[in-house]
Design a protein around this nucleic acid. Sequence first.
DNA 1: CGCTAGTTTTGGTCTGACCAATTTGGTCTG
DNA 2: CAGACCAAATTGGTCAGACCAAAACTAGCG
Lengths: 268, 268
Amino acid sequence: MSSAPSTPSAVDRVVSQLRDDILGGRYRATDRLPSERELSEKLGVNRGAVREGLRTLAQLGIVEVGPGGAKACGIQQASLDIVAHLFDSDEVPDVAVVDQVMEVHAHLFSSCVRVAVLRGSDAQLARAREQLAALKDESLGALAHFDRLHEFVNTLVEASGNLVLQLIHRALALQFWQRLEASGEIPPPPLPDSVLAPLAQGLDEALAERDPQAAQGCFFDLVSAHREHAVRHLSSEQARNLRSQVSEHIGQLFRSAASTTLPTGRSR
Amino acid sequence: MSSAPSTPSAVDRVVSQLRDDILGGRYRATDRLPSERELSEKLGVNRGAVREGLRTLAQLGIVEVGPGGAKACGIQQASLDIVAHLFDSDEVPDVAVVDQVMEVHAHLFSSCVRVAVLRGSDAQLARAREQLAALKDESLGALAHFDRLHEFVNTLVEASGNLVLQLIHRALALQFWQRLEASGEIPPPPLPDSVLAPLAQGLDEALAERDPQAAQGCFFDLVSAHREHAVRHLSSEQARNLRSQVSEHIGQLFRSAASTTLPTGRSR
DNA sequence: CGCTAGTTTTGGTCTGACCAATTTGGTCTG
DNA sequence: CAGACCAAATTGGTCAGACCAAAACTAGCG
């Protein structure tokens, strides 16, 4: 059930197929991929559909179409939006990807919180505090919890008055919601209230007193807690399941770039 | 000369035309735009070209195609990549856009520098320091200067080992290079060496001593200096030129979100 | 071996057509 | 008159086949 379209459109098929092939490493960077005619035949769709698919992938930044043929590109040249595709082309989100997304999230939006405290209106901050309270109130599922966290951050982003920031937040947040909503099978990681409560309270106070420094620090810690928690959860999860071909290739790319990204409490 | 394609491809025409229309406010959010057939006739291109263009715009996040028709979307739901389009659809980069991009740049990549100092290898940091030295060495054009700054930051991003960060940097940096290279007419803002030198030196020392805190702070100041300088330059520039229809609409959107974004030293 | 000329391939564009789903407009009913 | 309802027009989605110019490839020449 869920969001499973019975008939993925032809161009969607092209996109996902080619996307997986590229992300999976079957086409390396600068590799020329088959001609449109060949692809249309191989995938059983019209050439027009192939063209639309290629254009989509080009916009995503993983292929480059031009006279003489289309060639694959490395992820380093891709659009930020590619991160979402790194998820839905795999079963279990790769730990390294999640970790890096949340690292950026922690750094960027803690700065955002600082700006929001400095520039935001009283109404906006009050609204943020309400959402923060709602966040720690109930012990509901991690899905709803993430949703509320997203709304909370969104309010702060709006309060910061920076549209670019908003775009990045949307792009980053999308990954998780899309991922979590799509896969109800994955046990959403719950967050221990014992660690959340004090952080949330500290942040609340900082917002109330309009203390930029404290707010920034608290928010950073809050996200970092989520990050560490998620990474730990996914690590065990990923160890259980075999990784798909996509994750295998991409994960390596991420890992080759990153040294030890987190002191992942390799518990036991 | 420069990057002026004598014959913009048909689909490019569709994309730029529709993009300007939407960004210019001729189509507001949730507005249904003309049917593909109508557009193909009106723009004098094939429907296939219109479809490819629409798909591109959909990927950019400013239109949403579906059964029954395609409708425009607000920029708040768009991809980060549209920021580039905000520039090349206008003559002079809007001050608010540049300001917000550089604000994000300052915040995010100063954090990045911190991480790079913590995690980067000696070789990477050494390379960064070289690029930093090359940066302040000569008094060359602002174009080359920006280019070197970009390379410097890129090295630090790589040192941070965060691919997501790299993607954002690429997306943000692209705006300026693309913009500056495309328009040789705009006098590139020079940067007074008197303000750059001390900041660069401080950053250099921080990198040498692997002092995360200092490096982060110095880098933030460095970018902020660029930011303030650019904003001041563009303000006077923009006051001189009449703004195009795009900037008028988009600029409002950015400004409505942002309060006074910078203490733009209204040095009268 | 390098360079050029000819051939093939490939992307870019166009015409015209069909289907399924939505939208739309009007009609009929309560 | 309001609302349910049904049929026609519209629209996106897909397909087939074709043409052109530019790139890529190849063979032949110097």
